[in-house]
């Protein structure tokens, strides 16, 4: 097991290097010296100093090494638009907000998604099951900008008199509810679907029939055998969920005007603040890589068969 963990952990190093390399190469393809783009004319001497400060006068491979060094020492360089701020400052300022929003969304997804999946599976083909499956299908079909907009429209505008939710911003807990639901909807349906599917599969297993045949009470069969075995897929579903949350946060944070990293990413793209765009991309990639690592190790722990197959 230890060998597996070490091997799997070492594998992340080339992956990180590849990601940084790809991002760096792509960044260089975007035309123009970042400091010449502005309308303000910069004197040549200052231009030269700026170039020197950010190593722009060095050949590209030196720049790349500086950038890699920056990534590993957690220094993602300066913002091109907001001169007095580094990418680090921006991430430090905005990321906690996104983390909180993502956490709340996950909470919503787990608290509602897993029970919905369990009950739907236990009452397969009932009205409740069909209702859950309808909601589940809406989860991946209806774009979350519609869900976010409708939540605002009804809860913050139409029924404003009866609900405490503001239309946008990130103030107290009442402003957290709608964004968390909007962001958590897709993961919730994802959990419900995964749990329902694996429950149905587990319910057909021989050991369930055996447990029933030996006279175990149904509630105990479910609690002891079914749940334990069918929640594993929900654990391993965490990695693609991060993708949901990141993609979703771009939209949801923009719509609700939440000062998180997703909104800032969108702003940096439209404002052509490429070093910020790249910095956030790399940070998100690192998070996903680490999450994959954790999930793989967890999976290797839960299901020993996968230890040899996966690196």
């Amino acid at each position: 097991m230890l060998k597996f963990i070490v091997r799997r952990a070492l594998w992340t190093i080339p992956v990180v290097l590849l990601v940084v390399f790809m991002t760096f190469v792509m960044m260089r393809q975007i035309k123009g010296n970042p400091f010449q783009v502005t309308e303000r004319a910069v004197p040549v001497s200052i231009q030269r100093n700026l170039d020197r400060k950010y190593h722009l006068n060095k050949p590209w491979y030196t720049q790349y090494l500086y950038y890699v060094k920056g990534v590993f020492t957690a220094d993602l360089g300066p913002s091109l638009v907001q001169r007095n701020q580094g990418v680090n400052d921006i991430i430090k300022e905005h990321f906690p907000v996104s983390l909180k929003l993502g956490g709340l969304a996950m909470l919503w997804a787990v608290v509602f998604g897993i029970p919905l999946g369990i009950i739907a599976a236990l009452k397969q083909n009932s009205v409740f099951d069909y209702a859950v499956m309808t909601v589940v299908n809406s989860g991946y079909a209806i774009p979350n900008f519609l869900i976010a907009t409708l939540l605002i429209y009804f809860f913050a505008l139409k029924w404003r008199a009866y609900t405490p939710f503001p239309t946008n911003g990130w103030g107290g807990p009442s402003s957290w509810v709608l964004p968390a639901i909007a962001l958590g909807h897709a993961p919730m349906t994802f959990f419900a679907r995964i749990v329902r599917g694996s429950m149905l599969e587990t319910l057909q297993q021989d050991y369930i029939r055996t447990a029933k045949a030996k006279g175990l009470r149904w509630r105990r069969v479910v609690g002891l055998h079914v749940l334990r075995n069918s929640l594993i897929p929900a654990v391993t579903a965490a990695a693609p969920l991060l993708g949901f949350l990141i993609t979703g946060s771009f939209i949801v944070e923009t719509i609700f005007g939440i000062p998180g990293i997703g909104k800032y990413f969108v702003t940096s793209v439209t404002g052509r603040d490429y070093s910020v765009t790249m910095g956030i991309t790399i940070m998100l990639s690192l998070i996903i890589i680490v999450a994959n690592l954790v999930v793989d190790i967890l999976y290797g722990y839960l299901d020993p068969r996968t230890r040899d197959v996966r690196t």
């Binding site: 991002t23 792509m26 975007i30 035309k31 793209v269 765009t277 998100l284 990639s285 690196t311």
Partner: peptide, 24 residues
């Protein structure tokens, strides 16, 4: 496959956005 594995977990939207930024 190693290369693909490395790409696999990446957030796809940022890379699509950067690609669009490259094209201008």
């Amino acid at each position: 496959m190693r290369f693909l594995d490395a790409l696999y977990g990446l957030p796809y939207l940022p890379f699509a956005i950067i690609t669009l930024a490259i094209f201008g």
